[in-house]
Nucleic acid binder design. Sequence first.
RNA 1: GGUCCUAUCGUCUAGUGGCCUAGGACGAAGCCCUCUCAAGGCUUAAACACGGGUUCGAAUCCCGUUAGGAUCACCA
Length: 503
Amino acid sequence: MTIVRTRFAPSPTGELHIGGVRTALFSWLTAKHAGGQFFVRFEDTDQDRYSAGSARNIIEQFKWLGIELDGGPDHKALQAMKTNEDTPDALDDGSYRGIPGPFVQSQRLDIYKAHAEQLVAAGKAYRCNESAEELSAMRAEAQAQGRTFMFKKSARLRTEIDPATPHVIRFDMPSSGQTVLDDMIRGKIVFENANLGDDVLLKSDGFPTYALAAMVDDHLMGVTHIIRSDEWLPSAPKHIAIIKAFGWDLPIFAHVPTVNGEDGKKLSKRHGATGIWQFRDQGYVQEAIINFLAMLGWAVGDGEEQNVFTVPELIQKFSLSRVGASPAVFSFPKLDWLNGVHIRQMPADDLAQRLLPFLAQAGLHIDSAEKLALLVRIVPYIQERIKKLTEAAGFIDFFFADVATPSHDMLIGPKMEQHLSLHALKASREVCANLAAFEDTPLEQAFRKLCDELKLKPNQVFSIIRNAVTGKTVTPPLFGTMAILGRDTVLARLDNAITVLSS
RNA sequence: GGUCCUAUCGUCUAGUGGCCUAGGACGAAGCCCUCUCAAGGCUUAAACACGGGUUCGAAUCCCGUUAGGAUCACCA
């Protein structure tokens, strides 16, 4: 029984795109569902595009999302692989020490070269050294003739190449017959070999191309499922041919569709956030991002109509075969809704902790145990009112800071005159001053009684009090709010309001 | 242009030949609840891209058309 092993293999060239995160999520869920392992491997074989620090950043993003990378190499080949500890880009915060990844391809050049030579020796790959100019001339000629350019062994300009001089190694792709890809998501796809050219396996700088490096590593790591973006679909038959040339077992392939913006084009900056940190900074929680991404292109099916999932539920129910083949459009309104759902499901103290950086950004520094305790008391009142963490500050700032003095107009209740509002305000003050227990329910009872006595509607009186006490028209429930603020603060703010309205 | 992929409400999807006068969710509209705002409850509008087949019967199978998309590098 082979253990399911999946991997996410980004090229560390910058920010991790949300579409890539979804692909990684599908890979992770596939592994976890089967009790298997998930790894990240960095494909940094293009020297021109390498971005230092990006690898680390990507790992941090997985960590933040709660997508854990697996350690415990129980596979000989896996152990033989070099780890991040050998790379200049090693993570130095210690949090990933002891796990066997990320794997970095630039550290493994000798391995790829040996594999390429192995294919040359077997007559399944060959050397050639056409220059970039010669190649583009060939391309131009093909185009002039209306053909699609495709390099084949027979097109070589020189056949005798000194292995000591710069050259590339190309894979000798069979030029007849068919290659069949049995994709988990798309089913069987048949490719005519005649349409496939001979790709470079090893570049003249000694670096491998994706086709070689990825196939070699996936084999050595014991990867069972190659789950990747569907832009790889056209080159999949070449990859299959390479794997076969080595005589290795074929892994399971799954090409997942892209994530598009509202206009049907691939999601990009102009659609809004695309990077994980952007989502985090906009107040989205991990649970919602993962839930949303999972549902983008995947559904439980079998008559089940569940939309809200926890990570354990996702792991239990996820199946690659139920991922749709068509591209999905990223919907921010739906993400917002899910974010609200997951916020509501959190324990109050957990939510309070997550709110901290956002409150600090709004100038509310919860810097003492007392303030934190206060925040935890407040959280249940705003929990079902916010969709994003960024919205919290606007609801609760008056608990921690003085309210702006309400304007004269704000203190006049709906369909009321100034003198009547003032009267209600003064009466309210008396209620607050004399109430035995300054708590939620007693306050509400006392104020409803007051409404009856004044022959005013609750909404009329309550809105005056709300404005006076909080300085806002939209707040958490009034009496709970007042109870938390405390009698002294409430009386002070009512007095302040009375002064304003009297003038 | 060659090759390949995709096509159900605005969006995410259920649906694998009869259970479909196509179900759910988000969003929208309305109502209820209600101290504001939310949350919650109920209701409504809203889709099988088109054309041919196959079949007693097609959203489901086949072909074509159209429309999107991917890919054709010593990038991944």
